[in-house]
Write a protein that binds this DNA or RNA. Structure first.
Lengths: 335, 335
DNA sequence: TTGTAAGCGTTATCAT
DNA sequence: ATGATAACGCTTACAA
């Protein structure tokens, strides 16, 4: 029915061992090499992934595990898939819906499938799966963290410098003479958010600006949250003159709220947004935004996990910190 | 290191055959059954997926293949994953980026991995992979189509009645005395869109309303497209009094354009939107919308593929046509 | 460099 | 209902 190494060996007049060695990149005599190659093409031979896995304990599959498929993780995941496909890996995706039991369950499930590596988007509750994660690492099944590290876990990570990102965003506002600056942050329990908030504090303190607690709003990473945060901020007796939203969906929510209230950007309030997905480009005026290097994140994560799978651990555990770009639009006004 | 059927057999004092039979749901003598169960728990036995696959030619993996991960396919995919996880299947995801070579390549790749079934979101270019698809079906590897069928391919599908959906949406507008109704459709080459347009035509004709070609706009399924379609429609000498947008992102684009132009919904123009994702709920006023039954689509697709994998083909090929809900908001005004 | 043969951990066939 | 054993298709010592 479907060709095996035996068939190839027979057609090429060599032994199965030789065929196998060819498949695994060993050196063969030139003449044999040619005949094996030809036999493989003629028979349409594809090596059986089960038999291969059974011997090598490798699945040629990598998992992406994320708390949910929002635009950030979806964009990165699709980019990762492109890269891994070229290396003949398949991608198994799992979202754990911000549920710590689900996370642990999925990680264990993946382990039973002899997954070759995991790219994990941690959330604050990833720490509760420390034991499983340690088990992976002990077995030399690489885990690359994306977007954030997990305190107490030593493994590779691809992250951005959140505090620095916020610092520069706020600095951009301060440079335009804003002093009353609000931040719409995600969620109190998120480490990413704590860092982004820290950057806000740093910038305000560095420039000697007073901070009001009411200017620190929490939008739960949702459009709804961003929308309501703006409504609340605009209802304050002392309105901020500028707003910094810390993710994509909250940025859109903020814009919708402002548009609805007929509060003009940037005439009535300035705005720095976050994450430039294609769909943000229609917003008028074009927003000044923090742009995360999604493709770079994906590339680094993919290459890092492939490297570890190949057994190259010389620079383990490395944390790749990527820079974000400030895209200057017209949503920040000099006052 | 890790327990095998042999270890279980030894501990339970039975043969490996008995253990295997237990694992595959055959009847055992009560006493043996108990001992095997206990041994499995005590040893933490998990059956090796490679060895199993090697014998049975089954991977316990199902693929979702989609042209891109927009909110529609992402929502459905995550719901599918929940269901398949319970059945111990893993989900391999692939997006083919609306590229027909990529589609064919991925389908062939998946076949080499002995995928047990494919859930495919076809686009207009899926037809060019007919040969691979036929090969799957000939091998009894089930393919369930979601969102649309592929002409000339006889397999299972879970779809919605697009013409009917549009008909009812337009009817809702006509019921409020609108006569000049525009449609923002996705893409000319999309069969889904052709059907949705047909429903528009049907409704207009049924109620004897004239149709102007300028009222039929194409928004390419993007936010940008929806935005520009509205701008163009509002620049017409004879403005429509109502707009029907045929997917989520175009709906959001339309709302942003209208807000920016200070064209009030529904006072200046009425709007019927499409796909109620959580994030749409902040739009003011609440939109009258077509709501696709995402969870039902996911459930039906998942259960259908599992059924076929189990070998139950009695009702093959079945097309499950689901109903959409019209959610009445406040974006349609009686004129 | 190459051939031979022993596994890898299951399932399935055949007796019993 | 159960046990023994031969596959499944590959990789990898070990010999040559």
């Amino acid at each position: 029915m479907v060709a095996t190494v035996h068939d190839v060996a027979q057609k090429a007049q060599v032994s199965v061992g030789t065929v196998s060695r060819y498949l695994n990149g060993y050196q063969l005599r030139e003449s044999n090499r040619g005949r094996v190659e030809r036999a493989i093409v003629e028979l349409g031979f594809k090596s059986n992934i089960f038999a291969r896995g059974l011997k090598r304990k490798r699945s040629m599959a990598i998992a992406v595990v994320t708390p949910d498929f929002d635009m950030f993780s979806t964009s990165i995941t699709t980019a990762i898939e492109q890269i891994l496909e070229q290396e003949h890996y398949s991608l198994i995706i799992c979202d754990y819906q911000r549920d710590k039991d689900a996370l642990k369950r999925k990680l264990m499930f993946l382990q039973d499938r002899y997954i070759d590596g995991v790219i994990l988007f941690p959330s604050n509750l990833a720490a509760s799966s420390k034991d499983v994660i340690q088990k992976y690492l002990a077995k030399k099944i690489p885990i690359v963290l994306v977007d954030h590290t997990i305190p107490g876990i030593e493994t590779d990570a691809v992250i951005i410098d959140n505090a620095n990102v916020s610092f520069r965003a706020i600095e951009e506002l301060i440079r335009h003479n804003h002093r009353q600056i609000a931040i719409i942050n995600g969620r109190r329990d998120s480490l990413v958010c704590q860092e982004r908030l820290q950057g806000y504090y740093n910038a305000m303190q560095t420039y000697g600006l007073p901070i009001q607690q009411e200017w620190i709003a929490w939008g739960d990473f949702t459009q709804y949250g961003g929308y309501h945060a703006v409504k609340a901020l605009m209802a304050l007796p002392e309105r901020p003159t500028a707003i910094y939203a810390t993710n994509y969906t909250m940025t859109v929510g903020a814009v919708l709220a402002l548009q609805e209230m007929h509060i003009a950007i940037p005439d009535h309030v300035s705005l720095v947004g976050f994450d430039r997905f294609e769909s943000v480009e229609i917003i008028e005026p074009p927003l000044t935004m923090v742009e995360q290097p999604l493709n770079l994140i994906a590339q680094n994560a993919a290459h890092l996990i492939l490297k570890r799978i190949r057994g190259e651990y010389s620079d383990f555990a490395t944390t790749i910190k990527l820079n974000t770009k400030m895209v200057i639009g017209e949503s920040v006004k000099n006052i």
